[in-house]
Design a binder for these strands. Sequence first.
RNA 1: GCGCGUGUAGCUCAGCUGGAUAGAGCGUUGGCUUGCGGAGCCAAAGGUCGUAGGUUCAAAUCCUGCCACGCGUACCA
Length: 556
Amino acid sequence: MKQELESLITSVAKSVYGADIVVELTRPEEKFGDYSTNIALQMARQMGKNPREVADELATAVKEQLEDKVESVDVAGPGFINVRLRGSYLEENLQDMPDKRLAGKTAVAEYSDPNPFKVLHAGHLYTSVVGDAIANLLEQAGATVHRVNFGGDVGLHVGKTMWAIIQELGGEDPAGLQAINPAKRSEWMAGAYVRGTRAYEDDEAAKTAIVALNKRVYQLHDEDDHESPFAQIYWTCRQWSYDYFNDFYARIGTRFEKYYPESETAPIGLKTVREHTGSVYQESDGAVVFDGEKYGLHTRVFINSEGLPTYEAKDVGLLMLKQHDYQPDTSVIITGNEQEQYLAVVLKSVEQFAPELVKATTHLTHGIVKLQGGVKMSSRKGNFLRAVDVLDAAARANQAFTGQDSDDTVLGAVKYAFLKNRMGGDIIYDPEESVSLEGNSGPYLQYAHARARSILRKVEERPGGEGNSDFEQGERTLARKISEYPEVVNKAAMELMPHYICTYLYELAQTFNRFYEHNRVLGDARQDTRLMLVNRYADTLKNGLGLLGIAAPDKM
RNA sequence: GCGCGUGUAGCUCAGCUGGAUAGAGCGUUGGCUUGCGGAGCCAAAGGUCGUAGGUUCAAAUCCUGCCACGCGUACCA
């Protein structure tokens, strides 16, 4: 509807001004109309005329030429042109769908990126929820989306955990793993990581042992060792980590098509960097670096002086692997913003030999999850919040508030609390407030949906009403709000910003609740018109929540 | 030091490709029971949009300086 009107009004404007211009419409406050343009303010200057005068000319022409769609065209303020649509035109367009701009395209979304051998913390929950919503946006725009996950199955953290595990087992004895309660595996490994980290910091001998174990893990991959006792412990525990991740993702309603472990990206990254050493990458002090400074970036090491790939090289390998596996038209990487400049260097280096790949890649970043009062959550101090702690806290509060357990409600509350913020900055997570089920929250939206469904369920029981004449005021307000949906989704998909959808859905639900409060539906003389609107509203809300990964149950 | 980012109501946030009296929620204060789910609705109070300049008919929005905070800044990720 918006695009149609824009092109229509643009052609009217051309016939009036004779200039090559493009009219863009915005959504003003309802009292001004349905769409608005400030084109007259922009044109007046170059035409040397009074803005109001220019606006009057265009307004008159639009009114005349688009009479079938437009009820009134007014000029207001310094020269805004406000368009009010005919109710019939509004109604015709109530089922408009968002664009499929990515139809036929392939997209890869990489997010979450937890490390095996470590625990999932609140930040992983945040990045998973945001990443999933962004992947949904790509999907709804028509793309085939592959969700992938990258994580460190090699590295110092693995050495720390393995050290503590071996201590716990009383030696390199894989049989001892069978004594671990399957339900407690992830907790057991998380405990091992904490002890390993403490030992690494406090105990020189342990530190030396951990560094040695770390090298053995790399070696185990090089030799493809699955047989030695040490290897058996490693592979078993690595699998436990992936099982734990999969269980968690299932719980929050997302899933990944593929894990890219660092142990797999490292060799190809190393090979790729070596191939371009001398041209793209340079040797420097025994290491291989990329000189980012000539691009206004930092210089970073890709292969260290021991010949081992750093994270930079592993990320190069990951880019190559994703390209090889999917040949994506669009590749989105979602990480914390501490990696922004780091990844910029990696991408700039790869751009030198694979420009198309980099051109198709977008790096989106988000801030960290903080507690009320700005306390950063630490994964090293022991008092950090795990991902499950967030969900459990929400579940407990929901239980206290409603007296029942509902995964839909709890997940809706947590996801919405994360998604409603514009991505980029840090977010404050207040366990109490996030599960407070009032105001701008997921459960508010779910409730607003369930109420509408409840009305629709009763239609058969209470037939009656007629009414299709033009909208009454309350009906029109709701119809107008519903009609914004495709525009909002298009914007969110273009910018990969899910929070636009949250803002809109909240406004939509508020609009509905006001409508509900003041307009009887069942048994009213205007029942048919109102039922149509309630139906459109409920479907729109459910659809929008779906994009956010939030369920919209018919009953709560 | 340099680079990236943030600074909007007591709190948490929208608004930032410049436009019409700066919007929500929470909290605070005051209302709504004879009807479709009150997890709702109506209303009030509350803001030097960090700060000082600049550009513009018009700046929370663009540019510059400054202040505060966060992150990054060669062999961690």
